[in-house]
Simulated assay, not measured.
Amino acid sequence: MTNPTTGQPAIPADVPAGVMIRPMTPADVPAAEHLSAEAFLEVARAHAPRGAAEPRLRSRARADLWVTRTLRFLESDAAGCWVAEGGGELLGFATSYRRDTTWFLATYAVRPGIQGRGLGKALLATALDHSRGALRGMLSSSDDPRAFRRYRLAGFDLHPQMFLSGEVDRSAVPFVERVREATRGDIDLMNSVDRATRGAAHGSDHEFLFAHHRAIVVDHRTGEGYAYFDDRGVALLAASNRRTATSLLWAALAEAEGETSVPHVTAANQWAIDVGLAAGLSLRTQGYLGVRGMKPPTPYIHHGSLL
Rank of each mutant, 00 (worst) to 15 (best):
M190Q: 06
R292N: 08
P174V: 05
A268R: 13
L90H: 02
R69L: 15
L164G: 08
Q161T: 06
F156R: 10
D28V: 08
T25P: 00
F93L: 05
F104T: 12
G116W: 11
R292C: 10
A27S: 14
H303M: 00
E33K: 14
R180A: 12
E167R: 15
L253G: 06
G258D: 08
P174Q: 02
P160A: 14
A245K: 01
Q8K: 14
M24E: 03
E181N: 05
G185I: 07
L209I: 09
W271F: 15
L123F: 06
T197V: 12
D157S: 15
R117F: 06
A268H: 14
V176A: 04
L164P: 03
W103P: 04
H130F: 12
R180N: 08
A31M: 07
R170V: 12
G203H: 01
D231S: 10
E224L: 08
P55A: 12
R195F: 06
P174G: 07
S247T: 02
V234K: 00
D230K: 09
A252G: 11
H264K: 13
A182D: 11
R69H: 10
G290Q: 10
R178C: 06
A84C: 02
E54H: 08
R69F: 09
Y97F: 14
G120N: 00
I216H: 05
A10M: 08
L90R: 01
L248S: 04
L289H: 14
R214W: 09
A13M: 03
T246S: 02
H264C: 12
E255F: 04
I21E: 00
A227V: 09
L35C: 01
G203P: 02
G116P: 12
G88N: 07
R146Y: 08
M294R: 08
G137I: 06
A32L: 11
Q115R: 13
K295V: 13
H206P: 02
R22N: 10
N241Y: 11
L139K: 02
V83M: 04
A63G: 04
A154E: 05
F40Q: 01
R198T: 01
T101Y: 01
A84D: 03
A10L: 12
H302E: 07
L91S: 02
F210W: 13
E38L: 04
L283M: 08
A254N: 04
T183F: 10
V193Y: 09
Y288D: 05
A53M: 09
G86Y: 04
R132P: 00
G293P: 02
T197R: 10
L153W: 02
A134P: 00
D194C: 01
A78R: 13
L236E: 09
R146F: 05
V234L: 15
W103K: 05
G155V: 13
E75R: 15
Y288V: 05
A46K: 10
S36Y: 01
G155K: 15
H264M: 13
G166Q: 09
D231W: 12
D157A: 15
E85F: 13
S282C: 11
A147I: 02
S141I: 00
N3S: 14
D28K: 14
P145H: 05
A44W: 01
T183N: 07
G80A: 03
R98W: 00
H264V: 11
